[in-house]
Write a protein that binds this DNA or RNA. Structure first.
Lengths: 341, 341
DNA sequence: AGGTATCCTGGGAACGTTCCCATAAGTCAA
DNA sequence: TTGACTTATGGGAACGTTCCCAGGATACCT
C-alpha cells in the first residue's frame, strides 16, 4: 500500500535542472520562453521536461510574478435567472471567451452569481486568484461594478454603455442593427410593424430607437399600439402575439427583440393560420437559433466571438495599465425565409 | 501621478498581525477558523481584518497547504458542438455546480474543450491550479478521462457508467425514467409509441431499454418501424416527425428522448392538424423547458441541482483519498398537458 | 592586446502564506 | 509543591517559482 499523500515526489524545477545539468534559473527561462538561453541548452532542457513530463506549479510562479493569467468571468443571475440560463447566448459567450482566453494562455474562473450564492464580485481578484473581471451583462449589479472599477480593479462588462460609467463596456451596435432590420421590413413594403419584447432594458432601449430611426427615414409614423410586451422566451412571445391577434389590430411585420421571441411569433402566426412571410414578415435579433430551423429567421447577427475577443482585449489593456475604453460592435442583417428571401 | 505598480502596499498577514498586536501565526489561525485561539484575541484580529479590508492571498496559502479549493470543470464540445451549446442543460448544470462549489468555498475553473482550443484535460490539476476535475458528459473523450483517472487524479464525470471504467460517474437513472414515461403512455391506452431521437448515445441507450421494459410489462410488442431518428434539437425533431407522418405509419404516442425534441414533435403534429394529446400523446425527457410553454410537456425530470451536488460530493471524496464510486439519481415523471393531465 | 559589448548561466533573495515546533501561562490532581 | 496536561501564542522553515544581480565566455572593435 503506497502512501497517497505523495503519489509522485512532485517534480520541481530544481529536480529538472539537476537532471538536465543546468541551474533552475535556466529551466525557468526555458519554460517562460526567454530568448536569453542558448539553443543547445534549450533543446536539452526541453527534452528533459518532455521526458519526465514536468508541468510547472503555477501557484509558485504567480505568487512571485504577481500575474495569475486567470480571468474571473461573472454571470449575474439576479433577476429573471431562468431566462438567463435558458438563453443560449450565455453558453455561446462562455465558450467563445474560453476559446479566446485559452489562446492567450489564460484560465477562466466562472462565477454564476445567483441570489442564493452571493459572493463579492471581485472576490477572485482580491484574493489574487485572478488578474481581472469580465461581467456578462450588467443585470442589476451596475453599482457593484462601479464600486469595483473605482478601486482600480481591471473590469469589463458586456452591455450597453451608460454615460459616465467608470468601467469599460463592449456591446453590439443595437441601434444601427435595429434600424437595418426595420428598414428591411419597410423595404418589403411593410408599414405596420410590431415591436415584440421588453423595450425597457438597457440593451433593448437602443433597439427601439433604431426602430424609430428607420420609420422616420421612411416617413412612417410610429404607432404605440404596435408595441407588444413579452418576456424573452419563445413561449411567452407566442402567447403575447396570440393575444395581440385576438385584439384585432392589423399588422404586416414583426420586429422581435430576440430570435427566441421571433420564433414564438412565427408559432403564433402559424397557429392563427397566417402565412409567414406573405401575410406577416418577421425579423429577429441575435442570430442565436440555428439556421436549419423549419422556417429560417431573418435576423440581426451579433458576432459573439468578436465580442468575446473584444472583452478580453479590453481587459488585458487594463491589466497592462492602459485606461479603459468602450467598444461598439457592428451587426449585420441576415436575410432568410421569414422575410421572404 | 502615483506609481501603478503598487496601487496599495498590498496588505499582508504580517501587516495585519502587527496592527492587531499578535503574530502572523495567530492571524492565520483566525483566518482558517482554528479553535486554537482565544475568543478575545480572535475578536481583535477579526476587527482589524474588517477595518483594513484584508483578504488573504490564496496563492501563497495554497502553495504551502497544497490545497487549491478550485475545481476544474470541463465541457467537452468535440462533436456536435452547436447542440451542446444550445441545449440549456449545460448552462443549468454550470450554474448548479457554481452554487454547490461556492457553498463549499471552492472556485470553478471552466474549460470549454472545443476542437480548436485543445488543452490537456488535466491541465489545471497538473499545474496545481485545481484539486480535481468534473467532466460534463463523456462525449468522445472517454479515453482521455480514463488516462487521467489512472494517474490517480481526482475526476468525476456526468454520464452513463460503463463497465470497468476507472473513473466515477453520476447520471440519472435513464432506464427507470424511460420505463415510467412509456408506462404512463401505455396506461393512457396508447399502444403505438414512437421513439424520437438518437438511440445510439451512451445516455440514450438505457432509455431505449426502459422503453422496451415498459412495453414488455404491458405485453406490447416493440415495432422497429416506430424508431424515428433525429438530432437533439427542436427543429430537426419537427422535421423528422413531419417526414414520418408523410410515411403514413400510424402511431398514438411519442416518447421523445429530450424535451426539445418533444416540442419539435408537438410543432409538427400541430402543423399536420393533429391534436395533442387527443390524437397523439407526447412525453419528453429532462424537464428542461419551462413549464409555462403553450402546451406544457409531460416529461421525465432530471434533478440537476442534485446531480451537481453529487458530482461535487464524489469529487471531494476522491480528493480526500476515498475510492471512487458511482451515483445513479432517481428521476420523476412530471405529468402535464401533452399527455392530457 | 586590451577594453567593451554581447551572450549565456548560476546563485540567492523574495513572494505571502501554512505548518511544525517550542514555550509560556494557567489548571488540575497527587 | 510539583509534575503533567491543556490552552494560547510566537518564531522560523518550507512551499516552488521568478527576478535581480554578478560573473564567465566569447566576439568585436580600436
Amino acid at each position: 500500500m503506497s502512501d497517497r499523500s505523495k503519489p509522485t515526489p512532485a517534480l520541481t524545477i530544481i529536480e529538472i535542472a539537476r537532471l538536465a545539468g543546468v541551474s533552475k534559473s535556466t529551466v525557468s527561462r526555458v519554460m517562460l520562453g526567454s530568448p536569453l538561453v542558448n539553443a543547445e541548452t534549450r533543446r536539452r532542457v526541453e527534452e528533459t521536461v518532455a521526458k519526465y513530463d514536468y508541468t510547472p506549479n503555477v501557484n509558485a510562479g504567480q505568487m512571485r510574478s504577481k500575474r495569475t493569467n486567470v480571468v474571473s468571468v461573472i454571470v449575474p443571475l439576479y433577476h429573471d435567472a431562468d431566462q438567463s440560463i435558458s438563453d443560449p447566448f450565455f453558453m455561446r459567450m462562455l465558450t467563445a471567451l474560453s476559446e479566446v482566453l485559452t489562446a492567450r494562455n489564460c484560465d477562466l474562473l466562472l462565477s454564476c452569481m445567483s441570489e442564493t450564492a452571493r459572493r463579492q464580485i471581485d472576490h477572485a481578484v482580491r484574493a489574487k486568484r485572478a488578474d481581472g473581471i469580465i461581467v456578462i451583462g450588467q443585470s442589476n449589479i451596475h453599482e457593484a461594478i462601479c464600486a469595483v472599477a473605482r478601486r482600480a480593479v481591471p473590469i469589463v462588462a458586456w452591455g450597453q454603455a451608460v454615460p459616465d460609467q467608470p468601467y469599460a463596456t463592449v456591446s453590439s451596435d443595437n441601434r444601427t442593427g435595429a434600424r437595418k432590420a426595420v428598414s428591411h421590413l419597410l423595404g418589403l413594403g411593410r408599414r405596420r410593424i410590431v415591436v415584440l419584447g421588453n423595450i425597457d432594458l438597457p440593451e433593448t432601449r437602443p433597439r427601439l430607437l433604431g426602430y424609430r430611426d428607420a420609420l422616420g427615414e421612411a416617413g412612417v409614423a410610429s404607432d404605440p399600439a404596435l408595441f407588444v410586451p413579452s418576456s424573452f422566451n419563445r413561449s411567452s412571445a407566442s402567447a403575447a402575439v396570440t393575444a395581440f391577434l385576438a385584439g384585432g389590430t392589423s399588422f404586416d411585420g414583426v420586429f422581435a427583440l430576440s430570435d427566441e421571441m421571433g420564433r414564438g411569433a412565427v408559432d403564433a402566426l402559424a397557429r392563427a393560420g397566417m402565412a409567414v412571410p406573405d401575410d406577416v414578415a418577421v425579423v429577429g435579433f441575435d442570430d442565436i437559433a440555428s439556421s436549419t430551423a423549419d422556417l429560417p429567421l431573418t435576423t440581426v447577427r451579433q458576432d459573439i466571438p468578436a465580442a468575446a475577443a473584444a472583452l478580453v482585449e479590453l481587459l488585458m489593456e487594463q491589466i497592462d495599465g492602459a485606461p479603459s475604453r468602450d467598444v461598439l460592435l457592428p451587426t449585420v442583417l441576415v436575410r432568410r425565409q421569414s422575410t421572404g428571401f
